[in-house]
């Protein structure tokens, strides 16, 4: 077959030399390589991460467990527009929208909010499309949490109780919109007074 590209690089297959035919040089070379690793493992720091005692750092953009963010004032950002559900290739997101009633302004940011918001973690493929789809910066895939394994299938339907970000500012997810320290302080005092 003629060359198609003129960039071919023929790999030569040398016949084995006498020494190679005697097995031993390659065997000793292999043995020495593994022995180097043995001593490296025995003396230097091992590369194994002893999970769960030690953990590997995740990248800040890692797509982990979902969180429904609150805004600076502690209100839920989600407005139940349904874009995340549409964007989800696994069809794992379900929500029921509701109208915000009077007196709930400090709970929900927009006039519409998600009465229920469920993600089926078993279906979810953590592709991050929901995060991209959200126009309100409400849903984020946290970089530092993973969905834990569980025993029962039912436990994987994550409702709002588990998805919405905890109120305490310290436990907030690092993803998404960050509070300035002043905002956090303000929020903390608000929470304490409430």
């Amino acid at each position: 077959m003629e060359s198609l590209s003129n960039r071919a690089k023929k790999l030569e297959k040398k016949p084995m030399t006498l020494a190679e035919r005697a097995y031993l040089p390659a065997i000793f070379q292999g043995l020495s390589i593994t022995m180097q690793h043995f001593f490296r493992a025995a003396t230097k720091k091992q590369i194994t991460v002893r999970y769960p005692e030690e953990t590997r750092p995740f990248s800040p953009v890692f797509r982990g467990l979902h969180v429904l963010k609150r805004d600076e004032a502690g209100r839920e950002r989600c407005t139940a527009c349904g874009l995340c559900a549409v964007a989800c290739p696994a069809e794992a997101i379900t929500m029921v929208a509701g109208e915000r009633k009077k007196g709930e302004q400090n709970l929900y940011r927009e006039e519409k909010y998600a009465v229920s918001y469920e993600i089926n973690m078993l279906r979810c493929i953590f592709c991050g499309l929901c995060e991209e789809a959200c126009p309100k910066a409400a849903i984020y895939l946290q970089a530092d949490k993973m969905a834990p394994p569980r025993y029962e299938r039912d436990e994987f339907i994550y409702g709002k109780d588990r998805l919405v970000e905890p109120v305490s500012p310290d436990n907030r997810s690092k993803r998404g919109i960050q509070l300035t320290p002043e905002q956090a302080d303000k929020l903390r005092t608000q929470m304490q007074s409430a």
Binding site: A85, V86, E91, N120, R123
Partner: peptide, 10 residues
């Protein structure tokens, strides 16, 4: 059984 919503244009 775990996927019942057929809304949002599907």
């Amino acid at each position: 059984e775990d996927k019942t919503d057929l809304f949002f244009g599907r």
